[in-house]
């Protein structure tokens, strides 16, 4: 099994306050890892640090993506190298159409991989194909990114972008929050269909519910900036029943 991501003793802070206090985690190709934990444990900080959010400072440790120093890369380079974050709160960008946004992103990634940009025709065909996967409407193309989208549409749009960009590591940050059961099913099916032996995902969630649909190989409990317990999918059920009491770092 090929090692995709390796996190070693990662420490990170925001505004001088330490949030991650020594995370160790290895993710191999083909694996799904769930990260659960109480509010404030550092779940969203971990996704922000992995993607290079400028507000967070890494104060120790290292992260390797296929053996390369991920933390030394600019956020856009991490993305082109295949790290994708499905945002907990997708950002609205008035005036930038989905088409323009997606085409720019895809062609930047292709340039990074040494490929030619897609022609307008091939690009639109790809958009149509991937939209169907998420049951998104055709009119999406001309709408501004996330502007006026419902909560469910925003989350579907995240997974749609993931389908377009085909990342090797997808981080789903509370993708289930604010979704009704139908939207949850569509989003989870989308994620499952994108799974292949060479990519992996980190599913950050508060609740067991999403893990009924996206079945994890490993479940980690994050508490007070550290992984305090790791198990298989039955750990999520246990947590659902007994809560996080007794697991605090």
């Amino acid at each position: 099994m090929n090692k995709l991501l390796e996190i070693r003793n990662l420490h990170a802070s925001i505004g001088g306050k330490e949030i991650l206090k020594g995370i160790d985690l290895v993710i191999n190709e083909g694996e799904v890892h769930a990260i659960m934990g109480p509010n404030g444990a550092g779940k969203s900080t971990l996704s922000a640090v992995l993607t290079g959010h400028p507000a967070y400072e890494v104060t120790g440790g290292e992260v390797l993506l296929r053996g390369e120093n991920l933390l030394a890369m600019e956020p856009e380079v991490r993305a082109r190298a295949g790290v994708f974050l499905s945002f907990q709160y997708p950002v609205e960008i008035p005036g930038v159409s989905m088409t323009n946004f997606m085409r720019t992103a895809l062609n930047e990634k292709r340039a990074y991989e040494g490929k030619e940009p897609l022609s307008a025709k091939d690009f639109l065909r790809l958009m149509r194909e991937k939209k169907q996967l998420l049951e998104l409407p055709d009119k999406l193309n001309n709408r501004s990114v996330n502007e006026g989208f419902s909560g469910g549409e925003k989350k579907k749009n995240e997974i749609f972008q993931m389908a377009m960009l085909e990342p090797c590591l997808a981080i789903l940050d509370e993708t289930d929050s604010g979704l009704d059961i139908d939207a949850l099913r569509i989003v989870a099916e989308g994620v499952n269909r994108l799974k292949n032996p060479h990519n992996a995902s980190i599913v950050i969630t508060h609740y067991q519910r999403l893990l009924d649909y996206i079945v994890p190989d490993f479940v980690h409990v994050l508490a007070d900036g550290k992984i305090v317990k790791t198990g298989d999918k039955t750990l999520a059920l246990e947590l659902e029943e007994h809560g996080y009491e007794g697991l605090e770092g």
Partner: peptide
């Protein structure tokens, strides 16, 4: 410019 929009685009591979 909206910093969160800039980061969102960077996270999709678009240069700053």
């Amino acid at each position: 410019l909206d910093e969160s929009a800039l980061f969102y685009m960077q996270q999709r591979g678009i240069s700053k």
